[in-house]
Write a protein that binds this DNA or RNA. Structure first.
Length: 819
RNA sequence: GCCGGGAUGGCGGAAUGGUAGACGCGGCGGACUCAAAAUCCGUUGCCCGCAAGGGCGUGUGGGUUCGAGUCCCACUCCCGGUACCA
């Protein structure tokens, strides 16, 4: 950046960093096998979508991951840290629509760019295990896994109302709809009925929920988010009858105890019984109009809480099974077809939504739980004795629930049931750049899987990527038309591709056996590495990827392919880097590129700043000057390590120097602690302090003793090795070490040296600091008290009062209570 | 609304119930230099004071404690997630 003579004195990262990046690669320092005596440590950063440019979020992620790889290796672990590419997906296809460049060319070009940036960061991986979702060698096994799910009844195709993004011309999973809009492009999502492929993740709902409890090394918030997403509620399903017609339908409720308070029934407008219900009713016209309007409403409008509840009377009545009373049946879109049975018993006295609806349409409200005297709200949701409830009167909420469910069972009309909010995972995408679904439709045999020996079903090259509501594959006749493997007749291939979250649900298993030609992975090799000892990534994957990957792992466990049934033992979710509290994004044009910093400050300074910026779990505000600061620190270390920070002197005796060595060992203790608890910011701060101490030592009047300085500086380099690896390795070599720094064991601190000998003791009067004195760290309470009371400064503060109490907390503090 | 997290100097942040503001950024003053950059030294929460020193101070109001940024209660605001889930 700046030329001139001075530049020679500072850390020449432009020369040093590439040198070590090559060395690590040539020496295969971070390539590993399964034949080690050391304990294993499987460390993964979430594999990226190859967008082509490393952004600060990646840098933060890989800096943490790389620190851990290097640190754990020094701690004696057989560390596997692989990297790969989530390389199917929409951006490459959208680019192809614009430019005509094949998504594969586009993607592979970007992978190459990103890979070189990752190398430039000094982040090290076992590249022999690199995987990319878009390669036939990988998606062969994604298809194989699909067929396994199919064989187990966990993959199925059905017509369903789905979320349709009109801009991307594709279906979205529920998880990809954010506030009624497409997660990717923000376009409001529409409802469409399409035949789609689903994975039956709901079969695993209970296990996905229960096993969260065992994930105690996961962030609490991620567990809570998954718990809410799965959304288990216990309740009861019971049957009711339509008066006159004898038609039966079921309702689900979590409050069966309030059944005597039912004053109406509501059906979702899409409920399959609605047609029959309204046919011939005097309210038929009105009802049809309402259904029409409800269907057209976008998800966004329907979800709006601002909207008043609307509905329409069907003209029919349902019979309450507990007392034979007839209650009106309404249609209303506040009841959702996708949850429960799509029909509810409405109890306005105990449900606020029902209350609002009842008020609007002038329906009765009956309280069945006695609210407390001071209750001023509308619907009462709390506990209390049951009232107006026949044989339930007087019972508490829980007792009444149990009693009424028993009664339903005795009558044979209902039972206790559990409902989940979680829906099956819709995996069909009407797009080109994804993993083809290995299924055929035969006019005689129906849905037929592609035989495993015919895999992979290759993605054909095409010319026209424009979405037309069907996958672009649908217009490739050579692809579509094939033979049925069962009857030999003509058959047609499935033309949808899979959601890219399918690809990413198992890549961490492929890493363990990346080139296996027979299986997605060898169970033995997978069992050696699984589970991941550390998984690091963004919080945005809290429910999507992390839950799908858990689901796949459980299925593979049930297949006997892998022993564990949870993939990620420890999860760390990093906070987001923002610029002045605004999210960095291309569209806002406020992206700070790491590339510029590789050139101006070097990778080590950038890494160190990411470590130093704040607690890793928190968001952080980017500051260019912050990188100046860590670069300055590295320069100071560099000058000290290359003899430019001051001369050392030969001196036999170790005197006050002992304190310098002690400081180094205390730093080592703190840095080790801090790394273990992911407090990288304070670990860096501690290294800065040590470097300040060493600088002062070199400049001190009596001079730094050669041997002592060397010992302390060596510790500094060892601690810097995982954080600023290039500079640390270079200085290690320059200070005369033969072996590579990365191969050194992490040092142990000397407890005797690290122990404090003299500390500052604070003397307080009534909790306010009035004096400070130096005392022996081993001082007794009695001696501390005596010293404190003897303090001259204290006398003025005690004057006029009597000492009521003395609290001594040696060696840090004595508090004299004066009254 | 519900769930989770948070609020500390000009800024990022530090602090097992025990010296609030470590470390860094920025600022100010100085050394070096013809000058600048770089580097080094000093200083930097606010208020009063020439100083010695003193007072105040961790979103607000209470409480527990010899002692509270930290624990408890009530509230305000900010961030994230989620939302007619019966």
């Amino acid at each position: 950046l700046i030329g001139g003579a001075i530049q020679v004195a500072s850390y020449d990262f432009a020369r040093v960093e590439p040198k070590w990046q090559e060395r690590w690669e040539q020496d295969r320092t971070f390539y590993v096998g399964e034949d080690s005596d050391k304990p294993k440590f499987y460390n993964v950063c979430m594999y990226p979508y190859p967008s082509g440019d490393l952004h600060m979020g990646h840098v933060r992620n890989y800096t943490y991951g790389d620190l851990l790889t290097r640190y754990k290796r020094m701690r004696g672990f057989n560390v596997l840290s692989p990297m790969g590419w989530d390389s199917f997906g929409l951006p490459a296809e959208n680019a192809a629509i614009d430019t005509g460049i094949h998504p594969r060319i586009h993607t592979e070009d970007r992978i190459a760019r990103m890979k070189s940036q990752i190398r430039r960061l000094g982040s090290v991986y076992d590249w022999d295990r690199e995987v990319a979702a878009h390669t036939p060698e990988y998606y062969h096994w994604t298809q194989w896994l699909f067929l396994e799910l199919w064989e187990r009844g966990l993959a199925y195709k059905r017509e369903a109302p789905v979320n349709w993004c009109p801009r991307d011309q594709t279906v979205l999973a529920n998880e990809q709809v954010v506030e009624g809009a497409c997660e990717r492009c923000g376009t409001p999502v529409e409802k469409r009925d399409l035949r789609q492929w689903f994975f039956k993740i709901t079969d695993y709902a209970d296990r996905l929920l229960e096993d969260l409890a065992g994930l105690d090394a996961w962030p609490e918030r991620v567990r809570v988010m998954q718990e809410n997403w799965i959304g288990r509620s216990e309740g009861c399903t019971f049957a009711m009858e339509v008066a006159g017609s004898g038609q039966r339908f079921e309702v689900f409720t979590t409050r069966p105890d309030t059944v005597f308070g039912m004053t109406f029934v509501v059906f979702a407008p899409e409920h399959p019984l609605v047609e029959e219900l309204i046919a011939g009713s005097e309210h038929e016209k009105e009802a049809r109009r309402y259904i029409q309007v409800a269907r057209l409403a976008t998800e966004l409008e329907r979800l709006s809480t601002e909207k008043d509840k609307t509905g329409v009377f069907t003209g029919r009545y349902a019979i309450n099974p507990v007392d034979g009373r007839e209650v009106p049946i309404y249609l209303a879109d506040y009841v959702l077809m996708g949850y429960g049975t799509g029909a509810i018993m409405a109890v306005p006295g105990q449900d606020q939504r029902d209350w609002e609806f009842a008020e609007r349409y002038g329906l009765d409200i009956i309280r069945t739980v006695q609210p407390p005297d001071d209750f001023t709200g509308q619907a009462y949701l709390g506990d209390g004795p049951a009232i107006n409830s026949g044989f339930l009167d007087g019972l508490t909420l829980e007792d009444a629930k149990r009693r009424i469910i028993d009664w339903f069972e005795e009558q044979g009309i209902g039972r206790a049931t559990v409902q989940f909010r979680l829906r099956d995972w819709l995996i069909s995408r009407q797009r080109y750049w994804g993993c083809p679904i290995p299924m055929l439709t035969c006019p005689t045999c129906g849905l037929i899987p592609v035989p495993k020996e015919d895999l992979p079903v290759l993605l054909p090259d095409i010319e026209d990527y424009t979405p037309k509501g069907l996958s672009p594959l649908a217009s490739v006749e050579e692809f579509v038309n094939t033979r049925c493997p069962r009857c030999g007749g003509p058959a047609q291939r499935e033309t949808d591709t899979m959601d890219t979250f399918v690809d990413s649900s198992w890549y961490f298993l492929r890493y363990t056996d990346p080139a296996d030609p027979e299986l997605p992975f060898d169970p033995e090799r997978a069992n050696y590495w699984m589970p991941l000892d550390q998984y690091i990534g963004g919080i945005e994957h809290a429910v999507l990827h992390l839950m799908y990957a858990r689901f796949f792992t459980k299925v593979l466990h049930d297949m006997g392919m892998v022993t564990v049934d949870e993939p990620f033992a420890r999860l760390f979710t990093q906070g987001m880097i923002t610029l002045g509290h605004a999210k960095m994004s291309k569209s806002k044009g406020n992206v700070v590129s790491p590339d510029a910093f590789f050139a101006s400050h070097g990778a080590d300074a950038l890494r160190l700043y990411h470590l130093f910026i704040g607690p890793p779990a928190d968001g952080a505000v980017w500051s260019d000057q912050g990188v100046d600061g860590t670069a300055r620190f590295l320069d100071r270390v560099w000058r000290m390590g290359t003899g430019q920070g001051g001369e050392t002197v030969e001196r036999p005796e170790l005197g006050a120097d002992r304190e310098v060595l002690a400081a180094a060992h205390r730093t080592l203790r703190k840095v080790t602690d801090d790394i273990e608890r992911f407090a990288f910011n304070t670990a860096v701060a501690a290294l800065m302090e040590l470097s300040n101490t060493l600088g002062a030592y070199l400049r001190s009047e009596e001079g730094a003793r050669t041997e002592t300085f060397a010992a302390a500086f060596e510790l500094l380099l060892l601690m810097l090795a995982p954080m600023a690896p290039h500079l640390a390795h270079e200085l290690w070599e320059r200070t005369g070490h033969e072996s590579m720094l990365a191969d050194q064991p992490w040092p142990e601190w000397d407890p005797e040296l690290a122990a404090e000998r003299v500390v500052t003791m604070v003397i307080q009067v009534n909790g306010k600091v009035r004096d400070r004195i130096e005392v022996d760290a081993a001082i007794t309470a009695e001696a501390a008290e005596e010293l404190a009371l003897a303090s001259e400064k204290l006398q003025g503060w005690i004057d006029g009062g009597t000492v009521r109490k003395v609290i001594a907390r040696p060696p840090n503090l004595v508090n004299v209570v004066v009254g």
